[in-house]
Design a binder for these strands. Sequence first.
DNA 1: GTTGAAAACAAGCACAC
DNA 2: GTGTGCTTGTTTTCAAC
Lengths: 172, 172
Amino acid sequence: MVDAQAGASGLDDLDLRLLAALVRSPGRSNKALADELGIAESTCAHRVRSLRSRGVVSGVQVVLDPASLGLPLQAVIRVRLGRHTREGVGRLFDAIVATPGVIEAFHVAGEDDFLVHVAVEDATALRDIVLQHITVHESVRTTETHLVFQRREGVGPLARVTAPSPTASGRR
Amino acid sequence: MVDAQAGASGLDDLDLRLLAALVRSPGRSNKALADELGIAESTCAHRVRSLRSRGVVSGVQVVLDPASLGLPLQAVIRVRLGRHTREGVGRLFDAIVATPGVIEAFHVAGEDDFLVHVAVEDATALRDIVLQHITVHESVRTTETHLVFQRREGVGPLARVTAPSPTASGRR
DNA sequence: GTTGAAAACAAGCACAC
DNA sequence: GTGTGCTTGTTTTCAAC
């Protein structure tokens, strides 16, 4: 085997185990992390800081429950544009993510141009978002609103890196 | 005015300001939070614990950068089903979120049944996900894969609760 | 790159208001 | 529901390996 480097990124085995532990339980103390990985606390702290500074860990996020906030309704709004100028698309994207209730938005290729995930209080609020924040933009041609029955987190990107091939094909 | 309660949820003004501060900078210490809000540390700690126990704050999440992990390609896969049995849908959902590279998945109403957000290393990996993890399920009729140019976070649910009416109705 | 130890810091708890 | 002081534990820093 070459060394402990993984893939194209400069992440060694310890980095990956650290990331896995971090993702699994973000609230843990540095001491607890270090103990689990069998390394010194200072080493653990250094690696975590390094991963943050390199941008591998983009950040930490507090997740709110929309329903508890009085926003029990979620939807994905598919937005299709007419004219596609670079500035128009950029300004629309800016306006979309600045709209209260918008959780995330994707600029995608294909039939649709944007997918917008929103949480709102009721159907009226949903209509108001579409009419007052989306279709008001002249570049928007059509929208389609899809109610979200359920949203679930996936195992995430890390699962592709840590366990890419269950079939042991020699070494990578 | 009635009191400091907001909307249908039992959240007062301090709770909302606390949540806003938490979301803005999740890494902050309790002391820093308390100082910003002008309250005692114990009060701040109590409120935060209460918000967590009530489920308003669902949790804390470590956000990884897929590109730094060697997964520069993101896509949204739209999945349409043929047969819609309750168990079939549930098992498919389980399988989808367990697929390495899947960041999140939505079960939606309408034309499509699932929207799956994935991060992968290249186009081949994307094809493999669709063929080996999605279309292998007999309930799946068709899929459409849409490349993600860019994903952006919205201002979030809290913005709908904290600043619903910009018109100053009395003092805050 | 890793470690252990000391100093600075923050969190949790019981209690008083 | 809010504030205070103490005790405990944790993060940080630094010299050294």
